[in-house]
Nucleic acid binder design. Structure first.
Lengths: 163, 163
DNA sequence: GTCAGTGCAAACTTTTTGCAACTAC
DNA sequence: GTAGTTGCAAAAAGTTTGCACTGAC
């Protein structure tokens, strides 16, 4: 599915189309998981997704969750994130929202970048033979908090040497 | 370490400085691993790094590899990638090289994007209170190969329905 | 009725941890 | 000498797999 077609259909319809196009079945699990995914408002893990479904009184096995999230990623309804070390983080694909993140190398805190200029800069890239679903930018560095902490530490060390 | 200071020092010197600034020891393991990392020319896993070190006749434990890669990431000498599901992929930080990747949602093939315009668009973002080490852009979508395959599949399906 | 999809549990892979031994400072 | 580091092995965490059962088509 191309980027432009995004907001024109409901996510349920998009899933239906995807399943049909690929000869896959329309199971209640898949739609329940889709709903749960779109009820989450930030990034989430498989485990959190399972808890959310449990609160909806919908039990699904872990295996199905793994299968289905993979499927939703393929259907461009879900995005799979890098940040964390062990666990995979997911996030629903919510149309126009810019997906630009700032990540601290030290404390690993993640913040969204809201810069129209940056967004435009990224969106200006339009390859000919590659049907883009979405773009994600990660800006790594040291956040102000950690920077201050490091500076302080270094200063202490220098004082120790001088003594 | 700020972006500008990048190419001015050798990687060994940068590691030395980082260790000093943080009161950490200068062990032969850390420098051997750094060398191995900078001898790799593409992305690599922990396991591949261990093999590379073995070829250098340098044995290190897995635990040390995990510790040290984490340390190198903090020192802005190494970057930790998202792509793969299970295994973490690493890549050395090699200065000016653009880190813009195109990833197929279907076959997961990764290609580097070489677009000066895009690079400039991304680099124009300069936050005030965040010391950037590097930027990574991931452009997700469907590659031409998979697009063709999907189109074919859909066509076949439609033919089946018509029969 | 058939076969894709699901649940369950076991297996597997990757990463982390605890502790004794080592070594940079 | 004394911590910070390392190696080893065991444990933990996350993900995948095999198989029997279920339900979408």
């Amino acid at each position: 599915m191309s980027e432009k077609a995004f907001s024109q259909k409901s996510v349920e319809q998009r899933l239906r189309d995807f399943l049909l196009a690929n000869g896959l079945r329309q199971t209640k699990e898949r739609f329940a998981i889709l709903k749960a995914v779109y009820d989450m408002d930030s990034t989430f893990t498989i485990e959190e997704l399972q808890r959310a479904l449990a609160e909806m009184r919908f039990r699904v096995s872990t295996a199905t969750l793994y299968n289905t999230t993979q499927l939703l990623v393929q259907a461009n309804l879900l995005i799979r994130h890098p940040f964390s070390s062990q666990t995979t983080l997911f996030e629903r694909i919510a149309d126009e929202k810019p997906r630009n993140y700032q990540i601290c190398n030290n404390c690993h805190r993640i913040t969204r970048i809201k810069s129209k200029e940056l967004m435009d800069g990224i969106n200006s890239y339009r390859p000919r033979r590659f049907d883009i679903s979405h773009r994600v930018l990660y800006v790594y560095g040291i956040c102000p908090k950690c920077e201050a902490a490091m500076r302080k530490k270094l200063k202490q060390l220098q004082n120790n040497i001088q003594q």
